[in-house]
Design a protein around this nucleic acid. Structure first.
Lengths: 112, 112
DNA sequence: CGAATCCATAACAAAATGGTTATGGATTTT
DNA sequence: AAAATCCATAACCATTTTGTTATGGATTCG
């Protein structure tokens, strides 16, 4: 997952409607038509949200007859979650170190 | 973490410069001036990125004399990571179920 | 005290975002 | 075959974003 992909993934996740689409895909695949009736926006608006999610690798679209079937692509979200968790761990580790240092200073205020 | 906060957090994380700022804060606090020399953009641009990160709750700013000290706020990123992980788990669970169903169908193609 | 430094905000321009309606291709239904 | 359905794209508009330069307040340095 490179920087450009992270841009796309986090940007895609920054919209409540798109997160809602992903949430509704948890219960299984949905057509564009079904998604349009789930959310109170026009069909073209749904199509554009899906293109954003698709570009980010967060959903897959597949033509089936005249319908388009949408499914969640778990791996990409998992990668983004790992990235975020990695940073949190990284920060936390350093904060723990800082805490150790500060504790030592408190124990020996003369700096020995 | 409500929907509006998720908007702010993911939107803040969708910019490579802001992720870079967060990364550089892993090694400890930095002043706005230091961050400005780290990244090849103007000081006002850095200030605005910091305001975005601050609004999302991803950093804290503290005036110290004429300097502004910036530190990472781990908790918020952790919450976003948890949100994302939760969804991944949720999806994965359903996909696993689907997989079970599909496997059973493969084992008994007559649908018994 | 005067000069320099640190930083936030305002004003502006360019680009991206998210909604709409209009349209048309492909497929299914009748 | 004609009508209806599903969906993508184009065109348009309002809003937001991200960079810039200009400016000024607060603090520190000499």
């Amino acid at each position: 997952m490179d920087s450009k992909n992270l841009d796309l993934v986090f940007s895609a996740l920054s919209d409540a409607t798109r997160r809602g689409i992903l949430a509704s895909l948890a219960s299984g695949e949905r057509t564009v038509h079904e998604l349009t009736s789930d959310f109170d926006i026009s069909q073209p608006a749904v199509s554009r949200h899906l293109r954003v999610l698709d570009s980010a690798g967060l959903v897959r679209r597949e033509k089936r007859g005249r319908e388009t079937i949408v499914t969640a692509a778990t791996e990409t979200a998992a990668e983004a979650a790992h990235w975020l968790t990695h940073y949190v761990d990284f920060w936390t580790a350093h904060f723990d170190q800082m805490d150790v240092i500060l504790t030592k200073q408190r124990e020996r205020p003369d700096g020995r």
